[in-house]
């Protein structure tokens, strides 16, 4: 392995890390602005024009706020919780193909940090660890509301992971690969998976909401019931990590939706433009971010429109509706593939 390769990976990884953080940071502002606009309000506009410094203000304030540790808390776990959540949220971005490759000086540089050949499995593995951060935090706070929040988060995660994986299996069957890069490559042009898997997309979308603990599945925090849920006892930057992780998760989930169902960095008529490979790659990456932005917006749109589920209804929806539907979807996909294969 030569030095250039390490340098390139290092730059790419830092760039993606930075972008994730930046996007998450500004998602917080976007969320507040979007909420305001949905509600006929203006939203933050005092900190800089359009409230552009609002996230900085929030971050700085949280940073300088008093560190607080409840008397009966488990000290180690209490700190571990938010750190784990934050770390895991950032890990997923490694396997997402942010764009095709750039050719510089004859060498090809892929815009994916790691093209793991079991990328999908990696994502799921990481995502399912994510809930530990919440669980540990909720447990360590030694607060009943936090505990209820943590328990809810854990059970919610388990129920929806299953349906989510089932839909992915259908996709995997179609692409015949577990690598995200391959999956994107197969959706070249307008050949997006969403056209073939509308039901799968719907299920995946719902599960993504549940995995991110976003409304209408925001039971673990659920302000009006559990005050703050798992982060009730957290203050200062530890709280900041939790809130931040939520937005990073949202960003990553949107990226996953775009990658799996909306062709990632592919866009229609990309072959008809007759542009150089590098330009196409850059446009592709931008398109990818537009797609992500739309889904981030969609996440917010849903939050400010719908009431939330009740705990048992959430379980019922997960196990009794989404899981059977996902299985049916999988079987149909299998049948269609089989029939096509034999024709």
């Amino acid at each position: 392995m030569d030095g250039t390769y390490i340098l390139y990976k290092f730059i790419l990884a830092s760039a993606i890390l930075l972008i994730s953080l930046l996007v998450a940071m500004y998602s917080t502002l976007l969320e507040r602005k979007v909420a305001a606009f949905f509600q006929d309000r203006l939203g933050p506009n005092r900190a800089g024009i359009f409230g552009i410094f609002q996230p900085l203000a929030d971050g700085l304030k949280l940073f300088f706020k008093e560190e607080f540790m409840p008397g009966d808390a488990d000290k180690f776990l209490y700190i571990l919780g938010p750190s784990l959540t934050m770390m895991i949220a950032l890990l997923t971005s490694a396997v997402i193909p942010w764009g095709n490759s750039l050719v510089i000086g004859g060498a090809e540089y892929s815009l994916q940090v790691a093209d793991v050949n079991v990328g999908v499995l990696y994502v799921f593995a990481i995502l399912s660890i994510g809930v530990y951060g919440i669980m540990i935090g909720g447990w360590a706070s030694n607060n009943k509301y936090a505990l209820i929040g943590a328990v809810r988060a854990a059970s919610q995660m388990i129920s929806y992971e299953l349906a989510m994986s089932m839909t992915i299996i259908a996709i995997v069957m179609m692409s015949g690969s577990l690598s995200l890069k391959d999956m994107v490559e197969q959706q070249h042009g307008m050949n997006w998976n969403v056209w073939y898997q509308p039901l799968g997309f719907l299920i995946f979308l719902v599960c993504a909401f549940a995995e991110c603990n976003r409304s209408p599945f925001d039971l673990p925090e659920c302000e009006t019931e559990l005050i703050g849920g798992y982060h009730t006892e957290y203050s200062s930057m530890k709280l900041g990590f939790y809130l931040f992780a939520e937005y990073i998760n949202m960003f990553i989930s949107s990226a996953m939706i775009a990658t799996l169902f909306f062709g990632g960095y592919n866009f229609p008529f990309m072959d008809d433009l007759h542009l150089s490979h590098n330009v196409i790659t850059i446009i592709g990456s931008l398109v990818f971010f537009v797609k992500i932005a739309f889904f981030v917006f969609f996440f917010m749109w849903v939050r400010w429109t719908l009431p939330r589920f009740r705990y048992d209804q959430l379980m019922r929806l997960g196990w009794k509706s989404l899981l059977p539907l996902a299985i049916v979807n999988m079987i149909i996909t299998g049948l269609v593939i089989m029939i096509k294969h034999h024709l």
Binding site: F37, F38, D40, W301, T305
Partner: peptide, 15 residues
Amino acid sequence: GFGITLSHFFKKKVT
């Protein structure tokens, strides 16, 4: 519901 909230998104703000 999405339709309703979206229609407000582009409405003039009363603030």
